[in-house]
């Protein structure tokens, strides 16, 4: 099995890497780039814990080979904070107690960010659809939906 050279931009930084043919984007982020905010839950696209934004769209990093992502731009949860300032979504998650064990949180945040990047004024239904692929076993989702709603208001008033 020969390795493949890929160039991917992660949170604004360009990386040139040699990756194996079976290496998933999730593995590259966590094991090579040590961006361990992105979690592995089920590994088969059911739980959403590994959600990242790839070229503007929320995707499962466990269901993409890094070799497929050559030339792409990836944003992970580590890319939300800017110069020590949390993203309004992160602030809202804290304020609304939308985090309990925290394992689903990075994926939830990325699904929410992909949504509001495209649709700054989502309805409650649109928020639910955006996070339908993200499992949370602690919060019951209500606080997460409230957090996303309040973040959209905060972003609007900026």
């Amino acid at each position: 099995m020969s390795n493949i050279e890929v160039t991917i931009t992660v949170n604004g930084t360009k990386h040139r890497l040699m990756v194996g043919p079976k290496e998933r984007l999730l593995d590259t982020l966590r094991e090579r780039l040590h961006l361990t905010g992105t979690k592995e839950g089920c590994g088969v696209g059911e739980c959403g814990a590994c959600t990242v934004i790839l070229d503007g769209e929320a995707v499962h990093s466990c269901l993409i080979l890094t070799a497929q992502a050559d030339g792409s731009e990836v944003i992970t949860v580590e890319g939300l904070e800017k110069e020590g300032q949390l993203h309004p979504l992160q602030e809202a998650f804290i304020k609304h107690h939308a985090v309990q064990c925290g394992f689903c949180t990075p994926g939830m945040l990325m699904s929410a960010k992909a949504l509001i990047d495209k649709n700054p004024n989502p309805t409650r239904e649109e928020i639910k659809t955006a996070i339908e692929g993200n499992l949370c076993r602690c919060t019951g989702y209500e606080q997460i939906i409230e957090a996303i709603e309040s973040a959209t208001r905060a972003l609007e008033s900026r």
Binding site: P21, R24, G43, C62, L63, I64, L65, Q68, D70
Partner: peptide
Amino acid sequence: AIAGGTDLLVDIRKENARAKGFKYLLDISG
């Protein structure tokens, strides 16, 4: 051939018989 991979990569990971018996993975997703 692999496109979105949402079925195939699950089959590969689970070593599903459906995904066996190929030598080359041709990525057409781009």
